[in-house]
Nucleic acid binder design. Structure first.
Length: 180
DNA sequence: CCTCAGTAGTGCC
DNA sequence: GGCACTACTGAGG
């Protein structure tokens, strides 16, 4: 089987992915959906950069733009960005290594309005020494806000980094703190 | 304040 | 099969 992919690894076979970009108070939000569910939520300031980012994450995907059936989902995701306390009721298509998906799954159990640390996540997934690898997995999170990697802080409480800009992380946390 | 080593997953060669 | 990356952390100066 030439195209056999490792379990959980990003899809190697050609596949179609629909996406839409809309505006929000945190900048542009790109939402992508595969046949299995939401495959990406990316934040940024430039439409083309967002598209490039999506294509880079899914090199074998054929991207389709301008599909109005994504409008409702896109609106839901923007609402989530505006009010992070509300959850998102949608099926997710999280593609990544086994380790990455374990990290992302752990992140999804961090309640809105609270935070955790890289060390704590590492401990929870049973790899207490993989602290740095956890940080890398957070950085690779393809589902911004939906998988709340912004709730992970350093052990000393510092914000550390954020793939989509530290200011966005600070703002998301401020909104959650204010609403909870 | 600073540097340094330990540490483990990932991407690129 | 290497090798150089990190959104880390605790210890030591």
């Amino acid at each position: 089987m030439t195209f056999k992919a490792a379990a959980g690894a990003p899809e190697r076979e050609p596949n179609v992915m629909r996406f839409a970009v809309s505006d929000s108070s945190l900048g542009l939000v790109l939402v992508a959906q595969s046949a299995k569910g939401i495959s990406a939520v990316l934040l940024g300031d430039d439409r083309d950069t967002l598209r490039d980012d999506l294509q880079h994450r899914y090199p074998f995907a054929t991207l389709t733009d301008g599909d109005t059936t994504l409008d409702a989902l896109c609106a839901d995701v923007v609402n989530l960005v505006e009010s992070p306390l509300r959850g998102l009721n949608a099926t997710l298509d999280m593609r990544g290594s086994e380790f990455q998906r374990e990290v992302w799954r752990a992140l999804r159990s961090v309640p809105a309005g609270s935070t955790t640390t890289y060390t704590e996540v590492a401990r929870r997934i049973g790899s207490p020494k993989s602290v740095r690898a956890v940080a890398r997995a957070c950085a690779a999170n393809p589902l911004a806000v939906v998988v709340p990697c912004h709730r992970v802080l350093r052990r000393d409480g510092q914000l550390s980094g954020y793939r989509w800009g530290i200011e966005r992380k600070r703002e998301l946390l401020a909104r959650e703190a204010a609403a909870s």
